[in-house]
Simulated assay, not measured.
Amino acid sequence: MEIPQGAVVSPASGAMIDFSQPVKFKVKNGNIYKDYQVTVKAQDPILSFKINGLSATINNSGKTISLTMPEGTNLTALQPVIETGNGVSINPPSGTTLNFTSPVSFTVSNGSLTEVYTAKVTTPVSGPSVAFLGTAATRTGLTNPDEIAASDWLFGKFSGAVYVSVTDVVSGAANLNNIDVIWWHFDSATTLPADAMSQNMISKIKTYLNGGGNILLTSFAAQYVDALGIVPAGKGPNNVFGDFLPNGFIDTGSDWGISFKGYENHPVFDGLQTYESGKANLLEKGTFRLNHTSWWFLPDWGGYVNGAGWRNQTGGNNIASEAWDNTLDGRVAIAEFPGGTANKKCMVICTGAYDWYNETVNGNASQPNSFQDNIKKMTENSLNYLVTH
């Protein structure tokens, strides 16, 4: 640092300083003092990555690039248009025709510094039929804003989406034979509705699963794993809670997210924007939240002790916890059943950060959640994963 003659600065010029957070410098010259706050941000080497006008998700911490192209896209000959930062070169260069049927490595260089990014370009699973399960007679009859937002996204994303009511499943009016995945996102109450818990309904869903079907259970619907016998009796989520309007709160101090350390390469987390390897935010600080949670609390309740104990007792794989939990021994926020590596039947996403709709606060719109794309991507990945594994 260059400062006026006679002035001193602390920290001193040339000192080794951690700039991961803003740093305050105090300059003194005689009896005059002034503080300067300095923020240093590293330049991202890749600013944008587009194919046919579609923008990819660039994860600079994980060094990955992810892009989903429309169904039917020929992945063998695509030309990415890549914008890099000042002084940065990339190889293969922008505009090169490449085969993306498998991940492609890109080497970025700036002077003597080099990094390798892995780009994965995919297409949606061909024609998955997803049934959104709801308690209303029709989709337009849904009243819970979170359930409405989730179903609206599904019908805009999956051409094979249909709505199925609990009543129609119970009566037999709903034909589940051609459904690849049932998604039940229940956010209306901590207790599951009586008609969904009827033996007739449970029997119909069990028959569907035994016939090769799959189910994604999110928010309070995660509790359904117990009724369906996906886990042994009494081994469903043991920590179920949340607020309902007019209650709720704004957390201005921290983002809420998940840790999937050890499962960084799991397909469910493919393409998420992470802030470090194996960690991603789902709910931005400053947003209104109800914290609808239906997960497993491991250390003190249920006799699980840790993640290994939970896996042994439930037969599932716990693949994500709260963001602070690097060993996945504290909470089960996302899980797949059965355990092992094949024949997946069920997935649950049961963290309070999995929030599709930001409610209003005293009539004022909540701050938008800039991490909403992570929720959408993780849900899309989960549905496709159940179809293909």
Rank of each mutant, 00 (worst) to 15 (best):
N99K: 04
N99H: 04
N99P: 06
N99F: 11
N99C: 10
F100T: 05
F100R: 11
F100P: 09
T101A: 03
S102T: 13
V104D: 02
S105D: 14
S105P: 01
S105E: 15
F106A: 00
T107W: 02
V108K: 02
S109V: 09
N110T: 09
G111T: 05
S112W: 04
S112H: 05
T114C: 01
T114M: 03
Y117R: 08
Y117G: 04
T118G: 03
T118W: 03
A119K: 09
K120I: 01
T122V: 13
T122A: 02
T122D: 04
T123K: 09
T123H: 01
T123L: 00
P124L: 00
P124Y: 06
P124C: 00
V125Q: 05
S126C: 00
S126V: 08
G127N: 15
P128Y: 09
S129C: 03
V130L: 11
F132T: 01
F132E: 01
L133Q: 03
L133H: 02
G134I: 03
T135I: 15
T135L: 13
A136R: 10
A136H: 07
A137I: 12
T138K: 14
R139P: 03
T140G: 14
G141T: 10
L142D: 12
L142Q: 15
T143D: 10
N144G: 13
P145E: 01
P145S: 14
D146F: 06
D146G: 14
E147W: 10
E147R: 07
I148P: 12
A149T: 08
A150D: 12
S151W: 08
S151G: 11
S151K: 09
D152P: 07
D152E: 15
W153G: 09
W153T: 04
F155G: 00
F155Y: 14
K157T: 15
K157F: 13
F158K: 13
S159K: 14
S159D: 13
V162F: 06
V162D: 10
V162W: 06
Y163C: 03
V164L: 03
V164K: 11
S165W: 10
S165M: 04
S165D: 09
S165T: 06
V166F: 03
T167K: 13
T167R: 07
D168A: 13
D168L: 02
D168E: 14
V169S: 06
G172E: 09
G172F: 08
G172N: 06
G172T: 07
A174C: 10
N177K: 10
N177C: 01
N178Y: 00
N178Q: 02
N178S: 14
I179F: 02
I179P: 02
I179S: 04
D180S: 15
D180L: 10
